[in-house]
Design a binder for these strands. Structure first.
Lengths: 70, 70
DNA sequence: TTGTGACTTGTAGTCCGTT
DNA sequence: CAACGGACTACAAGTCACA
């Protein structure tokens, strides 16, 4: 599985687990709402700067977001 | 410490530990040598696609490359 | 062997909206 | 609330010559 897809599904799963909407997460991470949507669909490969913003908004480490969680 | 700098120093350290030149690493990861040089100097925030290419060329997980190694 | 500048191209990332 | 479109700007990605 390519890292972009792994990241995409981790992002969606962790966001939902925290009970956040895409918009709330986007606001916390200070990135665009539509971009979060695109990331969860695997359309883009984010930079590690964005990866870190999302990770901290979710309260996890950046590594957690790109690691295969079986 | 920002993730970009953490990545930059990890990249250089791990490359040197493996005894590879920037050129050899670039070749293995199928990216440009001067781009590797830029990454080690923290000029760019790589996408997770590039992160993965470099990680696999170094034989480590992507997470290892962005984790603070005190 | 690595750093750097100048440059071009492609994709990341934003902002407006509608379904 | 989320998917998706177009139009745009910002920056990563890649190339080359040269110190």
């Amino acid at each position: 599985m390519e890292i972009r897809k792994t990241f995409a599904s981790n992002l969606r799963l962790m966001r939902q687990t925290k009970g956040l909407s895409q918009e709330e997460l986007a606001h916390r991470a200070e990135i665009d709402r539509t971009y979060v949507s695109s990331l969860e669909r695997g359309i883009y490969s984010p930079s590690i700067d964005v990866l870190e913003k999302l990770a901290s908004a979710l309260g996890v480490s950046p590594g957690e977001l790109i690691r295969p969680h079986e």
